[in-house]
Amino acid sequence: MAKDKTEAEIAAKKEKKDKKRKLEEVEDVEAVTPKKEKKKKRKSEAADNDESVMDVDGQSLVKVEEAEDKKDEKAVVAVPLAALVPFANPLADDKAQKKVLKAVKKAAKSKSLKRGVKECVKSIRKSPPATPATMSPNTLPPGIIILAADISPMDVISHIPVLCEDHNIPYVYVPSRAELGAAGSTKRPTSVVMLTPNVGGGKKDEKKEGSEEWLETYKDLHKLALKLGQTVKV
Rank of each mutant, 00 (worst) to 15 (best):
K16Q: 07
K118A: 08
K22H: 08
P141A: 03
D48M: 15
P132Q: 01
T231D: 13
E51I: 13
D55Y: 09
K102L: 10
P80F: 04
V76P: 02
T139D: 05
S176F: 00
E30A: 15
D205F: 13
S191T: 09
S112N: 00
T190I: 14
S152Y: 10
G210L: 08
G181C: 08
Y218A: 00
A107G: 04
I160G: 02
G200P: 03
N89V: 12
L228P: 04
A183D: 03
A78F: 12
L226K: 05
S52H: 10
V162M: 14
I124H: 00
T196R: 03
I144G: 00
D150I: 06
V192M: 04
K41H: 06
L101W: 01
T33C: 11
D205K: 11
A92M: 01
V56Y: 14
K70A: 12
P142R: 06
G210W: 05
K35Q: 13
S152F: 09
S152I: 07
P90F: 02
A31E: 15
K19M: 10
H159W: 11
D166E: 15
K114M: 15
D50S: 15
V192F: 00
R21H: 08
E209L: 14
A178N: 08
D94R: 07
K14P: 04
D72Q: 08
I146A: 04
H167L: 05
P34G: 03
E165D: 09
K16S: 07
D150A: 05
V79K: 02
N168E: 11
D4L: 12
K223Q: 05
K74T: 11
K38V: 12
E209S: 15
V174D: 04
L221A: 02
S211F: 06
K39P: 08
I160V: 13
P128E: 02
E65W: 06
C120N: 03
D69P: 00
V85H: 02
A82R: 08
K5M: 09
D220T: 12
E119I: 06
L23D: 08
S44M: 09
K208F: 14
E206P: 04
D93G: 13
T134P: 12
V76S: 10
T186A: 12
K71I: 07
L221Y: 01
L140P: 03
L113K: 00
I160Y: 02
V53W: 06
T217E: 05
K13F: 08
P86D: 10
D94F: 04
R21I: 10
A11N: 07
M54I: 11
N198W: 04
R21G: 09
A133D: 11
L81S: 13
V156M: 11
K39M: 13
D69F: 12
I145T: 04
D155G: 07
K233E: 14
A47D: 15
E212Q: 08
S158R: 09
A8I: 06
M154C: 10
D155R: 14
E212I: 10
K41A: 13
V156K: 11
S136A: 13
R177W: 05
D28R: 15
L180N: 00
V76M: 08
K207D: 07
D4P: 06
E7S: 10
K5C: 07
L101C: 01
S185M: 09
E65H: 06
